[in-house]
Design a binder for these strands. Structure first.
Lengths: 256, 256
DNA sequence: GGGCGTGATGTTGTACACAACAAAAGCATA
DNA sequence: TATGCTTTTGTTGTGTACAACATCACGCCC
């Protein structure tokens, strides 16, 4: 999996335009790679080659390495001398601590410097809700992940506390891959996807309602429950699936 | 201020030993520079030259740039093309949001995966308390800052939640310089230092007592109050000093 | 004397060649 | 065939020359 079909919903700047100074360029490459990792365009364990990336973005290895270093500091990559730059693997149990922290921070977004959403922002919430409704009609894992990501950013913009936003984002990107990865390995993949989208849609509707009223503290509470339960559902599914596979292994032992 | 007299309490590895692989080396340089920034060996606004640092650590600019990039991502530096790498300036008001967040995280340390301190750890707390008592007898701003730093790390080790530790550390290093910087400009520098050390010692004794009992939730509460009030005292001092200087300016206007 | 352009100087950003390192392939031997 | 050594290949880490950029000093013109 080296060729990546779509660059996601990148903010234009395609073709040869590539506007701006070196900092913007690096920021752009960073955002692209981060999104690819979190959407599993780059699978956990996959090896990225600096020179390949350099060719794709039409720069030398140097700025690419600048980006990879940051992604490594943030825990999404790991460079090994003589081997390659590897997308970090993740497992649901190791991420429990991150989820515990995310749960607490979600509540803080409603408490620390909350900003009352204006009309435009409320419209953005409604638009996202509409996208989610379309998703319920035609479930798709990748689209689900993207809506989830956009929703996160929108919610994150409800606090004016910059450090809180930055850290929430950091932790979000550390955890969000786990859903796509775990779900895709599940036996009951389609069923889990459907129920998860349905639940997500309902919770999203609740949150949008709270946003419309302007009670950001309630938003925080709902979201806290949302994140916490989402994690628990996923872990239960994963463990149930694992034991089921293990039991089945007694009859016909050809796992792996 | 380019020559730095002491490297702080670095873990030896001096002379020509410089053990280990490239990752350890980078980590070491990172820790040294971060400490220098936070102890104001590098003052806010000061310009660092990559080549100078490269010479000092006996490497080329490349690994130095790797370290500077991380410090820039963490908000302690800012590299400007054609100008230099500048230590970020800070002001007490801009850091209020970070303090608000630190206050919340301090409480979380007692709640999320708390680890009961063993005998060694309790001894470490007592040793630090002893150092603090010596400090009360002979006040010194830099020694105060160093004890404060060691105390932070010790407290941070009371949770097993790795992400929480990492983020707390990040925010701590973003804020800790402000005390030394602000206090050093105060008219009543010595008096403020003395009272601050006295207060710090008392709070430290309270926390150590709570640690000895093993009630980490109480530790969190005390520390929450500690951080919050420390910030308020500092801000009040700074503002009072500013208005006093401003008023004095009416009589003899020769500030700056 | 003041304003402005122009070159000199200094610094970070980039590109590239090479060193260091790891892993796989080839190969001889028991 | 299995095993251990050597060679080969591939990748990241480092060093260094140069480009891009900002700033300052100098001198020219008004």
């Amino acid at each position: 999996m080296t060729a990546v079909p779509t660059l996601g919903s990148l903010p234009a700047a395609d073709g040869a335009m590539q506007t701006g100074g070196s900092r913007e360029r690096i920021e752009r490459i960073y955002a692209v790679l981060r999104k690819r990792i979190c959407l599993l365009d780059y699978a956990p364990g996959e090896r990225l080659r600096e020179e390949t990336l350099a060719d794709e973005f039409d720069v030398s290895r140097t700025p690419i390495r600048r980006v990879l270093a940051r992604l490594e500091d943030e825990g999404l990559l790991r460079s090994v001398h003589g081997v390659g730059t590897i997308v970090t693997d993740i497992d649901i149990d190791a991420l429990e601590q991150v989820y515990q922290l995310r749960v607490e921070l979600a509540e803080l977004i409603g408490k620390l410097s909350p900003v009352q959403p204006d009309a435009d922002k409320i419209d953005a919430f409604r638009a996202l809700l509409a996208r989610c409704e379309a998703l319920v009609a035609r479930p798709d894992a990748r689209a689900f992940a993207e809506i989830n990501m956009d929703f996160f950013h929108l919610l994150n913009s409800l606090t004016a506390n910059e450090p809180l936003r930055a850290i929430s984002e950091l932790l979000y990107y550390q955890t969000t891959r786990i859903w796509l990865k775990t779900a895709s390995r599940l036996e009951s993949y389609q069923a889990v996807l459907n129920t998860e989208i349905t639940i997500f849609h309902r919770e999203m509707a609740d949150i949008v309602a709270a946003v419309e009223i302007g009670d950001l503290e309630v938003v925080g509470h709902i979201r806290r429950a949302h994140i916490s339960m989402s994690f628990l559902r996923l872990r239960n599914s994963a463990h149930a699936d694992a034991t089921r596979a293990h039991d089945a292994g007694h009859d016909a032992s050809h796992d792996d």
